[in-house]
Computed example of a mutant assay.
Amino acid sequence: MPDLIHNLEAVRQRIALAAQVAGRDPRAVTLLAVSKTFPAEDVRAAHAAGQHAFGENYLQEALTKLDALADLRGSIEWHFIGPLQSNKTRPVAERFDWVHSVDRLKIAQRLAEQRPAGLPPLNVCVQVNVSGEASKSGVAPGEAAQVARAVAALPTLRLRGLMAIPEPIGSIEAQRAPHRVLRELFEQLRADGLALDTLSMGMSGDLEAAVLEGATMVRIGTAIFGAREYSN
């Protein structure tokens, strides 16, 4: 799949350039390849090209993909990044390495209760609705500290940081504003004693703005795999 391999390299170069502009080490930014709606074969090809972290939004599709790629389990890291209903937390707790979309304490509590004892702690991020969009999940910025502290206290979970999906905006300067809100909140929580290390922000259209504002993980789908056909 030469296009996919070319796209992966192009995204890595975008990250490196943005990090250079920001005076950051590109190795401080993890690329999460968002493989939702794309087949397991595409994930396998990206993995063969050196990509090891993959994000999925839709649980049933993801579970089918995890089964198809079970032979890669030791060298692939699965991140659940979509909205998560409380009645669907068990398979996520049992089979994923990360959850980025914890938007209320009840979800975190269920993940903690359902994480198998033999597995490492489940890495989680609290999702923050930095743009205040009614259609977006996430806690309000003013509530994030309270939720984060409660999540951090739960057993079998490891609170890693914050995640956001800012409203799409045109210019890079405009794009930086909501990412800055998340970074400043992240820095405040760290100053208050929470051991956070992950800022999950930035997608195909605003990768550069996110890296300039301190993203440690960018979630890239379209720029790697191509346009999605949701009807399929």
Rank of each mutant, 00 (worst) to 15 (best):
G55K: 07
H52C: 13
T30I: 14
V29K: 05
A28H: 12
V34K: 04
A40V: 09
A49H: 08
V43T: 13
R44W: 12
Q51G: 02
T37W: 11
T30K: 15
V43W: 00
A62K: 02
K36L: 04
K36G: 10
E56C: 08
V34A: 13
V29E: 03
L31Q: 10
A46L: 08
Q60V: 12
F38N: 05
A45P: 01
L31V: 10
A53R: 14
G50L: 11
G55F: 08
F54C: 00
K36S: 07
S35I: 08
A46W: 00
A49Y: 00
A49R: 02
Q51H: 07
F54E: 08
G55P: 13
E61I: 01
H47C: 05
L32M: 14
G55Y: 10
T30S: 15
L32H: 12
F38C: 03
A62T: 07
L63T: 07
L31C: 08
H52F: 01
E41F: 02
E41T: 15
P39A: 06
L63S: 06
A46M: 05
T30H: 15
L32I: 09
F54Q: 03
F38A: 06
E41Q: 15
V43Y: 10
P39D: 02
A45G: 00
H47K: 03
Y58A: 00
Y58E: 05
G50Q: 06
L63I: 12
K36I: 07
E56H: 08
Q51E: 04
A53Q: 14
G50V: 12
E41Y: 02
A46S: 01
E56W: 06
N57A: 10
R44N: 06
H52G: 12
D42I: 00
V29F: 05
R44T: 12
F38P: 10
Q51I: 06
E41W: 01
E61Q: 08
A33V: 10
E56S: 09
E41K: 09
A33S: 13
R44D: 14
A53Y: 13
H52V: 14
L63F: 03
K36C: 07
A49S: 01
K36R: 03
A49K: 00
N57Y: 11
T37V: 08
A53I: 08
L59T: 08
S35L: 08
G55Q: 09
V29P: 06
E56G: 01
T30R: 15
E56Q: 09
S35G: 11
A53G: 05
E61Y: 08
Q51W: 01
L63R: 11
A33I: 00
A28L: 12
T30P: 13
A28Q: 15
S35Q: 11
E41P: 09
T37Q: 04
A62P: 06
F38T: 06
V34D: 11
F38I: 11
P39T: 12
L59W: 03
E61N: 04
A28K: 09
A45F: 01
A40Y: 04
A49D: 03
A28G: 14
